[in-house]
Design a protein around this nucleic acid. Structure first.
Lengths: 188, 188, 188, 188
DNA sequence: GATGAATGAGGGTTCATTCAT
DNA sequence: GATGAATGAACCCTCATTCAT
């Protein structure tokens, strides 16, 4: 089977968009990294913006998948949080760019309706978890949208710091940060 | 007194860079918003990139100023954290763009040495605070660079959510988030 | 076979640079005359200045070629001078712009090292000829750099006058001028 | 008396136009060299092009003056040529730029009617001299416009070589070149 | 299907010229 | 009269996109 060009293009864009940003990434750059002709990209994606949106949806979808898959519905809130945190960091470790890419391309000027909906789907998953925790009196009573930044923000930033080489990713580190984030959320 | 054009240009750029990003902001856009001719911008800034760096340094400097000014050197770690959190959120409230602008333009491709140093100055201020707290056994023993995201990240994200209109900024909200962030940092 | 765009661009630039000068020639002008898109020029030449230098080197190279090719090494000084004068004027007749172009673009602000070297190569060819003539006591004892203007200058100017339509180019004219130039050089 | 600003501006332009060419010389450059404000230039000259033309006419006028003044109407052709050659080189020595400036700015796109007429006046002076010499059978029978390059061209080029520092200007040099040029013109 | 040469709209930037001081 | 800050037209150049091969 021939190598999957569409996959190559998406992989190359992901790296370049993450590294340089959408605007600073040129189509020829993507073509070169993906080892395809520039015109080939237009066979798979209507234009650069559509490519971005496909990529964005794909990445967000993967995260939602990672979070939903095997989610311990009936476990304790703490255990559910562990699942979320663990899956998020594992995803980040396996696919370092995706997390950063999503975070730095959440621009309504670039994302279409569908991409934005997809991201809201992710937020809703997190909101639901938080609300259940609040109903059980375990998670602090603040608007969920104010709570999400308390663990999602640190995770994203953490991978940025790691990527810059300023921090080594170890299980201890993630365990420590998880504990901190949980302390941020839980009622004391 | 004549209006200060340089100030107008910086103000306009700040808003546009924050809103659209550096690359998606054109010089004519800045000129129009600042109500000056496009050429005028080049009387004050060598080029668009220099303008970005001036702005970046200015904003980071203001934050450092806000944090250092009246910092309670001899107060408790908790009180010092309150100072930092309060000044940061007050700065964000008074100057909503600046915080977001800095966070979204920390690109080594765009920032020169001096700008990066200036930002490190800010990080060092926060690192010193965290280390003192750790020496007193009050703040958890994790690398400071892993701790900074635990309160700096949420604050930045919070203002993004606020700017998108999804959340109203109230004293209660900030007080609540401060408590959460402190819980994330402190030893339990 | 497709038309050679690079060749078209060089031909168009040669005419325009000669007619209007480098600074007064815009890239769109070149594109229009060469019947290519403006962007196409940048596929073949890094920028306008590189185009100028390519053109300059090409033209100087052609002259050197025309002079060296079949140069009568063992003939008399007079015959060698005839060769030089004849080839120079024939070159000027066949390629009217090139001579004028070179003469009017010998600007160290525009020419790079390599272009300047190439021109020195041409000068050296002429200097060597003059020195041999001086050693044989046939050409007057003045610095070669003062002698070159005595025949190279008039030839260039002659083609300027011709181009302005003030003079018709005939064999008699060139023969007459050659005789004059030789009289300028030779010991009487 | 205050320093003559108009004179300063012309002097500064002469140097810059000669050194860099008309197009590569900016009005602020002239202002700085002339030690006046940029706006001041427009008090004396309608625009940059008018300044060029004033300068051109002034320089050509000075040469005509230098040639006409004390011209030995009734002397021999050889003596008349000596007068012309001597005055031209003396002018070049005293005012190195002017000669080069004129030669490199003889562009119909830049010069107005009047400037071109003024230059024709200079040419006519030279043409008259040549025709008289031809009538006396002393100067070769070629179109005067083909003869002028034989001594005017070398003189201009000579000062270029001198300015580039490749040749020292001495009386012997000029005497030698004069002899050569005369040999080019005279009937043998 | 795949390519990359070609295009031209639109960006950053310069600079001749104006005009309020 | 003199100034130089301000302007905006016009430059050079980039790059998303097309299309002949």
């Amino acid at each position: 089977m021939t190598t999957n060009k569409k996959e190559d293009i998406m992989q190359a864009s992901l790296m370049l968009f993450t590294e340089r940003g959408f605007d600073a990434t040129t189509v020829p750059m993507i073509a070169e990294k993906a080892q395809v002709g520039a015109g080939t990209i237009y066979r798979y994606f209507e234009n650069k913006e559509v490519l971005l949106n496909s990529l964005f949806r794909e990445c967000v979808g993967q995260i939602i998948q990672a979070l939903s898959d095997g989610f311990p519905e009936s476990a304790s809130v703490r255990e559910q949080f562990h699942h979320i945190f663990h899956r998020l960091t594992r995803f980040g470790q396996e696919n370092n760019e995706a997390l950063t890419f999503i975070d730095s391309h959440m621009d309504p000027r670039l994302l279409d309706e569908e991409s934005q909906s997809k991201f809201i789907e992710l937020l809703d998953f997190l909101r639901r978890f938080l609300k259940r925790g609040q109903q059980q009196g375990i998670i602090v009573q603040l608007p969920p949208d104010a709570l999400i930044p308390l663990f999602y923000g640190p995770i994203v930033k953490l991978f940025l710091v790691i990527r810059d080489g300023d921090l080594k990713q170890t299980d201890e580190l993630f365990a420590g940060v998880e504990e901190c984030c949980w302390n941020a959320l839980k009622v004391h």
